[in-house]
C-alpha cells in the first residue's frame, strides 16, 4: 500500500477550491486502489487549515509552518515539498495547477527524481504508471500521456473534478522545517497589484469576462455592475489587459488563468482560441457580442448578438428583478 499526497495551496489566507478538487479526486483514486490519502499544506501557521482539509477525507495531514510561506517564493516551497516527499514516499502527488505550482513543479521533479504531468484535465492510476489527458496545441486537442516511476507529480486544471466533502478523522503531523534564508539567492522585493477582498478568479462560481467590445470607463462600469449583481469575479481577454483597462491578474486564457465557473458571461469577447482555452470548461457560457460570426458563439450555451452598451443595462435590470423575486 502506498500513499497519494495532495498539495493544498493557500491563497488570500485560505485553501483554494482547486486544491480540494485535486484532493477529492485523489480520495477517489486512493479508495479505488487501496492507497492511503494524505495532504500537505505550507503556510505561516499551517495548522489553521487542518480542520477544513480533514473534511475532504485526508487521513494524514502534513503541516509545514514557517513565516517564509506568507508570500510565494519558489526556493523554500521546493525545499519543503522535497522533504515531505522524502518522508512520505508517495506514489503520486496531486497539485492544483496554479501559477505558484507551475513555478515549482519542474524544480521539484528534478530534486525528487519524479516524472511529471503538468496541467492535466483528467488522470488515473494505470498499470503501475499514471495516465492523464492534457490539452495541447493551444487547447485544440487532448494528448493522452503516460508517466512511469514513483513518484509521479500531477498538476490538475481547475474545474476538472468536483470538490466533494467526505470527513475523516485525520492525523495531523507537523513537520519541522528550517530554511536557511542566507541560502536564498533571490529576493522578493514586493508584490504589486494584489487583489484585496476581491473574488479570486480561478475559484469563482460566476465570472464576467470583458473583451475588446468594452471600450471605455462606461463599459468598465457596466461590467463591474453586472459582476456586483451576480457576486462574480471579473476576468478579461488579453487585448483589454494589454491596453491597460483590466489588470493582468484578470487575464483568462492559454497564457493567463484557467477558469471553469458554473456561469461565465463573455462581454464583448470574440472568443479567440487562446481565450477559449481558458474558459471552455465553464458549465454555462453566455456570450454577448455584436458580431454574429464571433467564435465565442460556437461554445456559448446562450448567445446574444448585440451591443453590450445596450444589452448590459437591460440584463442588469432583469437580474435585479429576478433577485428581488427570489428574496
Amino acid at each position: 500500500m502506498s500513499t497519494i499526497l495532495s498539495f493544498i495551496a493557500i491563497q488570500n489566507g485560505k485553501p483554494t477550491r482547486s486544491s480540494f478538487e485535486g484532493l477529492s479526486r485523489a480520495r477517489h483514486l486512493a479508495a479505488q486502489h487501496g492507497h492511503t490519502l494524505a495532504a500537505v499544506v505550507l503556510a505561516p501557521d499551517a495548522s489553521a487549515f487542518t480542520d477544513e482539509i480533514a473534511r475532504y477525507g485526508a487521513q494524514t495531514i502534513y503541516t509545514v509552518s514557517d513565516p517564509i510561506f506568507a508570500q510565494h517564493m519558489n526556493a523554500p516551497v521546493v525545499r519543503a515539498l522535497e522533504a515531505v516527499i522524502a518522508q512520505v514516499q508517495p506514489a503520486l502527488v496531486v497539485f492544483p495547477s496554479s501559477e505558484g505550482v507551475k513555478d515549482v513543479l519542474g524544480a521539484l521533479a528534478v530534486r525528487t527524481h519524479a516524472a511529471v504531468l503538468p496541467d492535466v484535465a483528467s488522470f488515473d492510476l494505470a498499470d503501475g504508471g499514471v495516465e492523464a489527458t492534457r490539452p495541447v496545441m493551444a487547447s485544440k486537442f487532448y494528448a493522452r500521456v503516460r508517466a512511469e516511476g514513483e513518484p509521479v507529480l500531477v498538476s490538475v486544471r481547475s474545474g476538472s473534478y468536483e470538490a466533494t466533502e467526505s470527513p475523516a478523522d485525520a492525523t495531523v503531523e507537523a513537520l519541522p522545517f528550517s530554511f536557511d534564508e542566507s541560502s536564498l539567492k533571490q529576493t522578493l522585493r514586493e508584490v504589486v497589484g494584489a487583489a484585496t477582498g476581491g473574488i479570486d478568479l480561478a475559484d469563482a462560481r460566476v465570472v464576467i469576462s470583458a473583451g475588446r467590445g468594452v471600450k471605455d470607463e462606461a463599459g468598465q462600469h457596466l461590467v463591474q455592475e453586472l459582476a456586483d449583481v451576480l457576486g462574480a469575479a471579473i476576468g478579461a481577454s488579453r487585448a483589454v489587459v494589454e491596453n491597460g483597462m483590466f489588470p493582468a491578474t484578470a487575464q483568462i486564457g492559454q497564457t493567463g488563468k484557467v477558469v471553469s465557473p458554473d456561469l461565465y458571461i463573455g462581454v464583448g469577447i470574440s472568443g479567440a482560441i487562446q481565450h477559449v482555452a481558458g474558459m471552455v470548461n465553464s458549465r454555462v457560457i453566455v456570450a454577448i457580442n455584436t458580431n454574429p460570426d464571433a467564435p465565442i458563439f460556437e461554445v456559448a450555451t446562450y448567445g446574444i448578438v448585440g451591443d453590450l452598451y445596450t444589452v448590459l443595462p437591460l440584463l442588469i435590470e432583469e437580474l435585479k428583478k429576478a433577485k428581488a423575486v427570489a428574496a
Partner: peptide, 20 residues
C-alpha cells in the same frame, strides 16, 4: 523519457448553444 504521449484525442465538444 519517462513521459510519453500515447495518442491525441479530439476535445469533448460542447452542445451547440443557441442564439436568442
Amino acid at each position: 523519457a519517462r513521459v510519453r504521449t500515447l495518442r491525441y484525442e479530439p476535445l469533448p465538444t460542447r452542445e451547440p448553444g443557441r442564439v436568442l
